[in-house]
Amino acid sequence: MKNANEFYQVISHCEVNSRDDVFDLISEHVSQDSRFSSKKELVEQLKQRENAGDIQIAEHVLLPHIESPLLKQSQLLFLRLDRPLRTWNEHIENIELIIVVLLKENDELATKKRIRSLMKKLADEAFIIALLSAKNQATFQKELTEI
């Protein structure tokens, strides 16, 4: 199920069994407008970021993020997993929500501000719990109204 908002998309009922499945899903939903020569290139960048430092931001929640000149517009993807992903890597497990931040290089300040405000909210444990426990897409969307 997709959401029409051009800035962010909430994708519910994701069925993924591995880290690679997640990357496939991300590249599927990345805006058609990007200049990545291949899906592989985008995934490569995400992996590079992860190699530099962990992307887990809370129990059950991941935040893969990159900034790239190859993106034509900035994008947020909320991937809600129906069944938790048991293992992400050696020390990250039981993932239920993946928030993907794809930032166009040197994007306008207004966009960065919106992302920042989301990040501030993500620092709040109560907000994370609300996102994780949202029963349906509508409740989940409602939590995001501020961004």
Binding site: L63, V101, L103, I115, M119, A123, D124
Partner: peptide, 17 residues
């Protein structure tokens, strides 16, 4: 962090608290 708006922004709130 890599983007300056991702995990670093989130960390800022947690650290400041």
């Amino acid at each position: 962090c890599t983007t300056g708006v991702g995990t670093s922004e989130l960390l800022k709130v947690k650290v400041a608290k």
